[in-house]
């Protein structure tokens, strides 16, 4: 039977239990690395470094975590901060939707051939993060707001704008 996040966190804080922390890392490493892979547009060389930095910060500041938010929300907040610092140092290029060549444009099934990773490139950084967190990771608008520190209204606006751009990208007319 797997231990809950709360119990593992308590063991890490009180006893500096590395095994408990490793269990937390194993539990969330795919989510965090997946998020970073999306945000860096598939740059596999950097995601492990960013993910490792995220988990090290979690370990350092774990005693300051309170139960007001879920641990997963707090973890994603830290990972987002790490990515944001990296983003500011190395600007990731955003592609203009009109400059993209969509394969088999006349075919109604063209959207099936388009990877979501390609689709993300037409969004700006704020739109990307909210779309990924809400639609892929399943966070609510309020949780997305806590993770990105954007006001709730801004999150909803970015989601709406992101959806409009993606509709255009997928040529969605229904």
């Amino acid at each position: 039977m797997s231990l809950s996040d709360s119990i593992l966190i308590t063991q890490v804080i009180l006893n500096d239990d590395h095994l408990a922390f490793k269990t937390l890392v194993e539990r969330y490493q795919s989510d965090i690395r997946g998020l970073l892979l999306r945000l860096t547009h598939g740059n596999k060389d950097i995601i492990d470094d960013l993910a490792q930095e995220s988990f090290i910060r979690v370990y350092k500041y774990l005693s300051s975590f309170n139960a007001e938010a879920k641990f997963k929300t707090w973890l994603f907040r830290i990972a987002y901060n790490v990515f944001y610092e990296y983003y500011n140092k190395n600007k990731i290029i955003q592609l203009d939707i009109d400059s993209l060549e969509i394969a088999d444009k006349e075919n109604n099934n063209s959207s099936n051939a388009i990877d979501f990773q390609q689709a993300l490139k037409v969004l700006n950084q704020n739109e990307q993060i909210v779309i990924i967190l809400h639609f892929e990771k399943g966070f609510t608008h309020k949780e997305v707001s806590k993770i990105t520190k954007q006001p709730l209204g801004t999150v909803k606006t970015n989601i709406m704008r992101g959806k409009e751009k993606l509709k255009k990208f997928y040529n969605y007319e229904r």
Partner: peptide, 19 residues
Amino acid sequence: EISKSNIQIPDNGFSDQVI
């Protein structure tokens, strides 16, 4: 569309490296 390109990344020693 997202579920079609769902990312599941195996650990492959990542957690050991973090520890």
